[in-house]
Structures are given as structure tokens and as C-alpha cells.
Design a protein around this nucleic acid. Sequence first.
DNA 1: GGGGTTAACATTTTT
DNA 2: TGTTAACCCC
Length: 796
Amino acid sequence: MFSDELGAGTHEPLLAGLNPEQRAAVTLPEGHALILAGAGSGKTRVLTTRIAWLLQTGRATPGGILAVTFTNKAAREMLTRLSGMLPINVRGMWIGTFHGLCNRMLRAHHKLAGLPQAFQILDQQDQLSAIKRLCKQHQVDDQRFPPKQLQQFIGSCKEEGMRPRDVPQHNPAMRRQAEIYQLYEEQCQREGVADFGELMLRSFELLRDNDPIRMHYQRRFAHILVDEFQDTNRLQYRWLKQLAGDEQNGQLRTMGSVMAVGDDDQSIYAFRGARVGNMQDFVREFDVRQTIKLEENYRSYSNILDCANALIAHNARRLGKNLRTAQGPGEPVRIFEAASDFAEAQWMVDEIRALTSAGMARQQIAVLYRSNAQSRVIESALFNAGVSYRVYGGLRFFERAEIKHALAYLRLLENVHDDTSFVRVVNFPPRGIGARTLEQLQDAARSAGCSLHDAAAQIKGAAGAKLGGFVALIEVLREQTQGQSLRAIIERMLDASGLVEHYRSDKEGEDRIENLHELVNAAESFVVQEGFGRDAVALPLDEQRGSGLTQSPVSQGLDPSQPAAGGFIDQDTGETLSPLVAFLTHAALEAGDNQAQAGQDAVQLMTVHASKGLEFDAVFIGGLEEGLFPHDNAMSDQAGLEEERRLMYVAITRARQRLYLSHAQTRMLHGQTRYNVRSRFLDELPQEALKWLTPQRAGAAQARGGAGGGFSAWSDAAPSRFGSKGEVFASPPVPPQKAQPAHGLRVGLAVFHTKFGEGKVLAIEGSGDDARAQVHFPRHGTKWLALAVAKLTVVD
DNA sequence: GGGGTTAACATTTTT
DNA sequence: TGTTAACCCC
């Protein structure tokens, strides 16, 4: 099909427009390579062009490539661009998310992996409720072991590749947690479900423990490409190693080439297991000879890049990289100090209005913040000003309660032993099956060692009758929907379950009913798009031909020219997933769009984390205050602080033309007024690139050190509303100094206490008689002191 | 079983 | 301060 393209020079258009580094990365010879791709350096372009180039020049076949990303969005983007570059069918190619590809592998080898082919996937919510159910059943003390914590524990065990028996059992608490982990695993196994971590771990173990399978994939994937490598966790890295080759005498012997693309300066997911160290390990263990830095930035003016470069230079242990641009300096980066969070938001609104009236599109303007709580003030300021906006994050389509209920019914149709789903809908809509009945049922199920569904018959009396009714409902529905289309199944289910009926009587049920109908649409379009080569798609027959259905995976893998086998086909029996199971898998693996579509022409509000990978003409970053950004919880150690700085780096590099930074002297937090010092990050930026919109006072560094001085001008007054912008702040050459709080303390000051000795002020809350200060005393630890009572003197 | 009340908690989040 | 989940009573 694309053999025509192989003629000399025909790949030129592919490489046209690439800079030398990009071109070098795209055309690297065989061997492992690390591509350090700075923000805005055309990373995705390089990645996809590399794949296209490998295919076009005959260096690889579609089936011989594995490309892995973190998000469905990134995977989709790659597929779209790739099919735009080459006339190939990307369907069936192994391009997807880590979890999507693991899922595919597990479906294909489910017997060896010890799973039913139609296993269901638990998302976070499902996992938590499964754990809660388990804790109840085994009388786990939920004070000592809160379900959330157990979920976290199990998750991180799996990320580290640990099964219950591998958990170090130093103390009784650890032993107990390992026990619960073990019980949880047994429960999942019994119910035929797998959580996200399990997909990854099970797939890893499948490769590790089955030589033929591992070798099959090692031979098959001559080229492995990894996106956002800096965000891989330990298990994902080990999984990649299994696919790449075997270790012999501590030496990794690989068959194909691994290209890792990432940016250590943009690693912001340590809190969920991301390990920047994987980059260094990769270079060492894979003996990487080729490292290419993409430092040319096509996004931002140089003032913005100068800020980014200067800031990130404060981090130690970097691989080292400096962004550059051919563009001019552009506008200076503006910094604004507001009296309050309220005033900060108002300033943003005023600036946003100025930008839009100068012709900038609203959707090209983003307001970024460190924590979600910050959005509230900004939202109300925008709302009052009549500026349309859109907040990212929040509930996704498949996470909505009504959708989850509907999915639970569908899951039960597929597998009546799915107790998570059973519990979810056995009494929803209400059928008079209460907590007592459920408890009885769970006891019966446990002593009989069977599922809730099977135990239902054992319950006597009225409760038993009601349970019987539910079981019968599912049974009847199952028979009725046998062989039906996905659409028909869902419509039938919505009707028979009473879900729609239930919401009809609910005053807020209208939206929910609409969503339930939307579920039918989602299923429809899933069926239509089925076969896009992702997730659990049952491939049509013509795609199955030549995929080695009748061959063992080993022999099949010997021929690299074969097209990718649809991974949802049982490698032994050739059985494919039913559309229903495929759809349920799709729903779990891809929770759907993140935001309701509120008008296109809207300012974008999101956390810095959510902004990664995006770009905007104008970017506002608010709340640049010590304690908020960098966040208190992250400042205890160097690593935490450095991650905060990377986060700031990500935020800065989102901006194309204009960047606005702001902080507030006063901020409402948890219903109390906090006085915050401006973020150290602001003092790490190059002055030449900045324009302070408000007079600059002693920086955070001085304040923290307790040195020098001047008065800090706090506003204890109620936040004031500013009529037109700049009225209050732009003109006066002297800062508008308000009365200083009577206690005269500031965050960072050294103080002396008659009993605790010398200490340092960490935070101040409240005012007047209620004022309290958090002070750290080297000998007595950190204490909150009521300033009206405690006698503190400022130490020079 | 539902509705109201109260207590606890409040970084970041994809799959 | 605002939300959420647990809890208690009818």
C-alpha cells in the first residue's frame, strides 16, 4: 500500500520544516535514544513524524511499532496526525495509553494472565467501594485503616510491582495492610474485575513469567516509542524493559529500539508515582548512545522563555536544557500585587477585558492556579463582569452517578458475579432492600464462598423475596437482550431497571435522564467508530485475517510483516469480545470529556497540572504566594520544592504572547484570612524580563530570612473593589501602606518566646485578639500561638 | 429508606 | 468558608 512511497527522496515532505535537531531525532538510526523535548519544541510532531518515517522508509511495519502515552487524548492526537501523514490504516496499530495497551494484551492472553476474557475494569470510585465493602465484611477498623488510605496503599504497592507477599512486614500495621491487600485481590479475582494498577501489574507479570509471550512481543516490536517518559512510574518502566529485552548477567540485551521522549523539567506527577529517575536509569540500563535535546521553542516570546529558564535553573539534579527562540522579546512579563484574593481576581478580569477588547479571543486566554479552591473567587469576578469562562476538571461523563448506575446494570448482564455492580444497583432505584438485608446477604455469600447474586436464594422471608425480584429482573433482562444490538440492550436496560422512571420523579432528574439518553448515543458512536484500533474493540472479520488466530502467538510473531492482531481476540480460541464488553471497557478506560461544553468563546480556567501540554496567547498565574505556590505540603523537602518549581515552569511555558503573574497579600483560606508572603518563585525570575505593576517591596527571600526590612503593607481592611484598572495601584509611587497588624509579626521573622526560646514564624492567621501565629521552635516543634496571650518578641 | 443535621476536612490526577 | 460524607431520627 505504501510501497509506492518508498522511492528515493519521497520522504522529503515528511521531514520538510523540521529543524536540525528534530530532523536528527526523526531519522535516528537503530538503537535506543533519549529525546529531551523542551516545552513547545514540537515533541508530538517529532514522535509522530518518527513513526511515519520508520514506516515510509520501510524500517518498520505498522505491526512492529509500539507507541505509548499516558492519556487517551495524546494517543488520539498521535493517531490522527499519523493518518494525516501516511495513507495507512492506523487501526490495529499498538498505539495507545499504558493501560489501554495492557488491557489489549491481557484480553489476548487472558488465560495465561488468569483472567476471564470479559473481565471488567474498576475505576477509582469502583475500587474504593470495593475496598469499603471488603472492610465491612472483614471488620477492618476503619479508624486505623481508612478505605482511602488502603486504596492508596494497594495502588502504590502495585506501582512498585509488589504483590501482598512482597510487602515488607515490619510492624503489625504493615502486616494487617498486606492482609487486606491479599483479601482485596482474592475478591477481585473472584468477581472477575481488575483495577487500573492491576492492568499494569498483571500485564507486566504476564510478560515476565511467560517466555514465549515475552519473546513474541520482543521480536515483534522493533520500535518502541514512549511519550512523556518523565512521568512513568517504576512498574511502567519495568514493563517497557520486559518488552525491550532480557537481562543477562545484569546486562540488558535488547532486540528492538526504544525511543523515550520527555522533559525532566516538566515532571509534575511524583505524587502519583512518576519517577524522573527513570530517565537516568534508562540511559544507564539501556546504554543509550543517542541523546538529542530539542531546545528550540516555537511557542513563546523570549521574555517568557527567559523567565522559564531562569526559574528552572534553581533546580539541582537536572539533565540540563535551555529553551531558546527565534522570536523577539515580546511584552515584559507583568507582575501584580493585590491586596486580597478578591482584588487579584478583579485585576485579572480587568486585564482580560483589555485583552479581548484589543482583539484577543477569549479561548486564547487562560487563568491557571495551583489549587482548585482558587477558582471560586475568579469565577465570581468573571461572572459578575459578564465574561464567559470555562472551568476544566470535575466530573467526566462516565463518572456521573446515573451513568455509573446504568453501567452497573450492563455489567451485571455480562457478569452476575460482579458484586461491586450488584451492590451499586440492587437497591437503586429503591426496591426496599435495605442495609440489614444486604448485610445478611453478604454474610451468606461469604460463608458459602459465592457471589451476592448466587447467595440471594438463601435469604428467607420478605427480604429474600425482594432480592429474588432483583435477581429475576437481571435474569429476564439478560434473556431479553440476548443477541440484541448494543443500542437495544441499553434502551431495554434503561427501561427495565426503572432508572429513567426513577429520575422522572426527581426534581433534578432531568439532566440525569438526558445523560442516560446520551449514553445511548455514546454507545452508538462507539459502535460506529469501533475498530479505531484502540481499547477493547472487536475487530471486524477482515481485520482478523492474517492476524494469526489459529497460530500460537509465538509462531505468529516470527513474521514481522503481519498486521497487528486485534488484541481483543483470544489468542487461543479466536473469540472476540461482545460489543457490550467492549463498550464497558471503553467506558472504564476512557472516562470521557472533562468539561461540559459551555460556549466556545470562553476564558479557560484550570489548575496548572491540567494545563500541561496546552498553550494560550495569554496566561494568568494567580496565587503566587509562599504556602500556596509553592504549596505548604510540598515545601518540607527539597524534592517537593523542586517539583513545585517544575510546576511553575510548566505554567510559565504555556504562554505564547503575554504572561501575567500575581499574588495577594490577603487570602481567604478555609474561612480564615491568611497573610501570605509573595512566592520565592517571583524572586527567581530575571528582572529584565519583568514589569512590576505594583511597587516592589522586600522580596520573599528577605522576608524569609528575617533580614532587613521596611514595613510590610498588609491590608486588614475589607477587600475593596476597584472601579477601573490601575486606579489604585498603578499611579502612586509609594505603596499604599495600611495599618500594620498590632502584633507586628510577619511570616519568616525570627521570634523569641520565654518558654520555647527562639523560633521562626511560619504562618499568621486571623487579626486582632484572634490573631494566631504558627511558629517553629527547633527544640519544641511547631506550635500555634494566640498572639493575644503568647509573649513573642521579634529577634533581630 | 429518606431527609435533615452535623462533623470532618480542604494540593495536584490519569488510567 | 464550602463541600462531602457519615449519621441519626422519624
